[in-house]
Nucleic acid binder design. Structure first.
Lengths: 202, 202
DNA sequence: AAGCCGTGCTAACTTGAGTCAGTGTAGGCA
DNA sequence: TGCCTACACTGACTCAAGTTAGCACGGCTT
């Protein structure tokens, strides 16, 4: 969908399906920055920076609406509120990246996994694709590894531990919260950064 | 300057001095998200999200211009170009956090350190506070540790290694690039994400 | 049916980074 | 003058996570 170094393209709003954005390192390893689910904006940085600094790839089949560069910039000058709205979306995005940063910097593998799957759960619930019980999740353990900065082997270990602790089960494409409260406690999860509903747009 | 959970405050533009923004975890450890140097915007997310999701603290004595919430939002509607400019600044900010994310996720301690100090160098050069030789840097090894997701002890080890390899010396508040090219190579550093000069503002 | 992938899963071994526990030094201040 | 604190620095030990090398299963293709 988008490739590092590519110049001049559109942004998209995901209608259905999952995508992921990532960076590749010279060493060949990659770091997944985030996953995009329905309702998410995608490629804004690529427009503002003219040339993309990361890649975006579909995980499942994705349907998305294209937002052309010219259209977006025009719309900004015509309806300033839109600019504010987009700015707000970008900020929420950054808040997620920051939380992800804390994951990688100061949480161990199990806490990271728990925190990550909880966040994903909240985001999916906001678009009606999950509930407090759990959700359908098409991510392989390899994808999780690249997102959480772990090896696939360790992802597997950690998932087993969380399952054995009776907190969370992730098998056959389904995440099930076995003990939601314990999990939230364990991960130190605070959803505040996700559910601001755009206070400036009231 | 800003505290997690605090409601309704201003943004700032740093005129002189260094500050850092960070998150605290229940466990007591902290993750530094980034350092703010002269010219940097600060606290934008706190305005957009009404309540701050992180803390900001001065490192040295800081002089900054306050930008009041009302003023900023007003200005957006009156001069849409300003909104675009701020959006662009926010995007550059996010790009830095993303690069930091890659640091923590997929680079080992030494690469992380090298990459981080190179980035800081480029940013400081952009505001005339450093050159290809090096720069003055008031960060203690404890601050570096909290930024890079390492222990202070390991920061010390890594700095020694880089010094012994003849790539970089960081002592007595001074970063000296002993072999800039080798360092760039070693860290896999690409400055592209830093020096876009706001193409939309031409 | 046979052969492949992609994925999940595991055990055995290695290693990078953390922890603990300490030394040395420079600056501030009582 | 001596004390105290912050910071840089180190060695010895531990442990979380990576690496390697595999097995097992289900869905594809030919």
């Amino acid at each position: 969908m988008i490739h590092q170094g590519q110049v001049g393209h559109s942004a998209y709003i995901v209608a259905s399906g999952w995508a992921c954005s990532y960076k590749l390192l010279p060493s060949g390893s990659r770091q997944i920055i985030g996953f995009q689910i329905p309702g998410d904006f995608l490629g804004l940085r690529a427009i503002l920076f003219r040339t993309a600094d990361h890649n975006v790839e579909p995980i499942t089949r994705v349907q998305a609406s294209e937002v052309k560069e010219d259209f977006l910039l025009d719309a900004f000058t015509r309806t300033p509120r839109l600019a504010t709205a987009v700015l707000w979306a970008a900020s929420r995005d950054e808040a997620m990246v920051v939380e992800h940063l804390v994951d990688l910097g100061r949480r161990n593998a199990a806490e990271r996994m728990a925190h990550f799957l909880l966040e994903l759960g909240v985001r999916l619930r906001l678009v009606g694709m999950g509930d407090r019980e759990g959700y359908l999740c098409p991510l392989s353990q390899y994808l999780l590894a690249d997102a959480l900065g772990l090896s696939a082997v360790h992802v597997n270990r950690v998932l087993r531990e969380l399952r054995e602790e009776g907190m969370l089960t992730f098998q056959k494409g389904k995440v099930v919260f076995d003990d939601y409260d314990a999990l939230v406690e364990f991960a130190g999860f605070h959803r505040a950064y996700l559910d601001h509903d755009g206070p400036l747009l009231r």
